[in-house]
Design a protein around this nucleic acid. Structure first.
Lengths: 238, 238
DNA sequence: CGTCAGCTTGATTACTTTCAATTGTTGTGG
DNA sequence: CCACAACAATTGAAAGTAATCAAGCTGACG
C-alpha cells in the first residue's frame, strides 16, 4: 500500500526537505510560523485537491506527488494549464488576488499535500518582504510560461505542439532514473488537453513519431529516443 | 499638430491625474520619489517603445495614448499579447523578474510615455509593502488574462476568437463618445495577430459579421451593432 | 501621379476534427 | 480467478475549417 508508506514521516515545515520555490528564503522560525496550522492530506490518483471556481481558503504545498492544474473552456473542454510536483505550491494565485481558484487541481498519482492556513500565510506576507518577493518571482515565472504557451498554441501546428508537450513533460517530471523514459504516465487524452488537440490526433501523431524513431513506448510511458530532433520538431531553436 | 499639444503640461508624478494601477496606493511623497528621475518621451504611431529581448532599464508609464504589446513566435509570426493605455505601466514584469523585456511595445497612436528609473522603483518596492502588493495584483491580473486567452485560442473557432477580439477591443479602448464605434482603429492584420489567425480570414469573417448585422464599418473603425449577440458568438456566457 | 501598404476576393490545398467501430487494459465484486 | 464494466487506445473514412497562394483593388501620401 503506497498510501501507507507516504503516511510516515511528514516533517513540520521547518524541517521539510523540499526546496520549495516559495518558502526558500524563509528562516526556520518563519517556516514554523507558517506551518503552525498545517494539515497534511493524502490524495489518490485522480482525486481532486480543489475545484476551479471554489473559494480559496488556504495554500497547498505538495510534499510528494505530481499534480495537474486544468481549466474548463466555455464548451466544457479541459485545458491543462500547468503541472506541479514536490515542493511546489498550489493556489497561491487565488490567495494573492483574493479570487476563487481559477483552475482545478487533480492528483496525477499518490500525493501528499500540506494545507497551510490563509491567515498565517497572508500575515507573514505582510511582514516579510522576501516572501512577497518570492511570490512575485513565482508569478512572473508563471506569467512568462503562460504567454509562451499562448503563442505556441496560437501559432504552432499540432505536430509541433505535441513534440513540445513531450519536451515539457520531460522538463517537468524528468526521466526515470538512468533512462530516457518520461517519468509521468499520461493518457493520450491528457496529452491532448495540454497540446490543445484531440485524443485521436495525439495517437496518430505519436505513432508517426514512433515510426520516425523519435520516441518509443514502454507501456503507458514514453521513451525519448532523440531529444534534440524532438526539440527541433517542436520549433524550439535556442 | 497633435504632438505639440501633447507636449504641454506633463505634470510631475505626484500631480499626475492618471489613476495608475500600480501607483494608486502611494503617497504624494512616494510618487515624487519615484518620479525623481522621470523622463517623458513622445512616440508617433508605429514607433517602438521597447523591443522584446532587450535589457530592461526602467519602468514605462503611459501618460497618453494606446500601446500594443506583442511577441514573436518561433516562425516569425507576431502575437499580440495585450494592450495598454493611459495610466498603465509597461515593462514591470521584466524589472521584477530581472529579465529582458519579453515583448515589444509599439505606440498605436500618438503617445506620451514616462520612463521611471529602475533604481528608484526597486528601492521603493523594497521599502513599501503596498507597492509590492499592487505589483502582485497586477501580475495576478495579467496571469489570469493570459490563461484565459490561452484557453480561448486553444479551444475556440476562428469566428469565436474574432468576435471575442472585438469585445476585447471594446472593453480595452471603449467606444467613441456617444457611439458604439470602437475607438481604436486596428488593421486587419493586427486583429489577426490578436485572434491568432490570418489577415484573409479576418476579412472574410468581419464581412460575414457585417452581413449578419452584428457590426458595421466606419472607415477603418468598427461599429458594434449588437453587443449581446457578439458576446454570445464569442462564447462568453456569463 | 506613381507607389506602397492595406484590403478584398477566389480557388486550391492541407491539416485536423469528428464520427464510428473495434480492440485492449484495468479494476472490482462475485 | 473470472466475468464484466468502465475506461483507454487505436484505426479508418468523411467532413469541415482555415491557411495558403495568387491576383486585383483602393486610398493615402509624398
Amino acid at each position: 500500500m503506497q498510501i501507507k508508506r507516504l503516511c510516515y514521516d511528514i516533517p513540520p515545515c521547518e524541517h521539510c526537505t523540499n526546496t520549495s520555490n516559495l518558502f526558500c528564503s524563509l528562516t526556520k522560525n518563519e517556516k514554523a510560523y507558517i506551518g503552525k496550522s498545517k494539515k497534511s492530506n493524502f490524495y489518490k490518483k485522480g482525486q481532486v485537491i480543489f475545484y476551479e471556481g471554489n473559494h480559496a481558503n488556504g495554500l497547498f504545498c505538495i510534499y510528494r506527488g505530481k499534480v495537474k492544474l486544468s481549466k474548463l473552456g466555455e464548451n466544457g473542454k479541459n485545458q491543462i494549464i500547468r503541472f506541479a510536483k514536490e515542493g511546489e505550491v498550489l493556489g497561491y494565485r487565488a490567495l494573492l488576488s483574493n479570487d476563487p481558484y481559477h483552475a482545478t487541481a487533480v492528483a496525477m498519482e499518490e500525493c501528499c499535500v500540506c494545507l497551510l492556513s490563509k491567515e498565517h500565510f497572508m500575515e507573514l506576507l505582510r511582514k516579510n518582504f522576501s516572501l512577497a518577493w518570492d511570490a512575485i518571482q513565482l508569478l512572473t515565472r508563471d506569467l512568462k510560461n503562460a504567454e509562451q504557451h499562448l503563442i505556441d498554441v496560437a501559432q504552432k501546428t499540432v505536430r509541433e505542439r505535441i513534440c513540445e508537450t513531450l519536451v515539457l513533460l520531460k522538463n517537468t517530471f524528468d526521466y526515470d532514473e538512468g533512462t530516457t523514459t518520461i517519468s509521468a504516465a499520461l493518457t493520450r487524452s491528457e496529452i491532448a488537453d495540454i497540446a490543445g488537440t484531440t485524443t485521436e490526433t495525439v495517437i496518430r501523431t505519436l505513432a508517426i513519431l514512433n515510426r520516425e524513431k523519435l520516441i518509443e513506448f514502454d507501456g503507458k510511458k514514453i521513451i525519448i529516443l532523440n531529444l534534440s530532433k524532438l526539440l527541433f520538431e517542436a520549433g524550439i531553436h535556442d
